[in-house]
Design a protein around this nucleic acid. Structure first.
Lengths: 110, 110
DNA sequence: ACATAAAAGTCTTAATAAAGGCCATTATAG
DNA sequence: CTATAATGGCCTTTATTAAGACTTTTATGT
């Protein structure tokens, strides 16, 4: 399955379907998940239809014992040793934006 | 990294950090991501601080070229052949749920 | 086949994210 | 070191989700 062929909405729906599948695999109802997570039934229904907040997803995945899947969803970057050396062990904290000319060297107007 | 040792809020923050790392690896600014995804700068900032909607996460991950990991996120359930046989090729659509006694067999009150 | 419960749909209200703006802080290119 | 851009924080308004209740549809155990 190639997700790049799907629209954003398509991916949202696919995520919802898979969460539902995980739940059904454990054979528990939406209402039970709501109770276990202390979320509302509506939140569970929304999540399974592809909407919802990131926090909702996390809480539900934990209850379904699927947090490890989230780990691969948002991969941790691995910095290569060479790159680390190049930055002298410093981790970049900001993108290196464009820098306007500091000031024209010998500015003169006439 | 084991997500199960983290609190829900901890996982949210970790997700935000990873998204930021993915962005910095491509050396683009939050403002650029906002422009490319047609989301607001605020939405990007929120996402990188661990909040945000699932849809926001998906759109940003696509822009950062990290959608391919989604496949391993919530893997599609693989139904064993035996189970398939047991359900006569039918896929379960609802949890089985408890069923109250249909009706007392020989009900009589006196 | 039918009764029952799971789940989908729909509403109202409360909470929170998104949009857009402005200011303060700080990494960093030069 | 210093000027500048990147980012974080905060605020207001708007849009969307969560909560909670109710009704309707439909899968499914018996």
């Amino acid at each position: 399955m190639d997700f790049y062929t799907l629209s954003d909405k398509g991916i949202e729906k696919e995520c919802g379907h898979r969460i539902k599948s995980l739940r059904l695999r454990k054979n528990i109802t939406q209402k039970e998940v709501a109770g276990l997570t202390r979320l509302s039934l509506n939140a569970i229904k929304s999540l399974e239809s592809g909407r919802g907040k990131l926090s909702t997803l996390i809480v539900v995945l934990r209850e379904l014992g699927a947090l490890d899947h989230l780990d691969s969803f948002i991969p941790e970057i691995s910095v290569s040793p060479m790159q680390l050396a190049k930055m002298q062990g410093k981790v970049r904290e900001r993108a290196s934006g464009e820098r306007l000319k500091e000031k024209p060297e010998n500015e003169r107007e006439w």
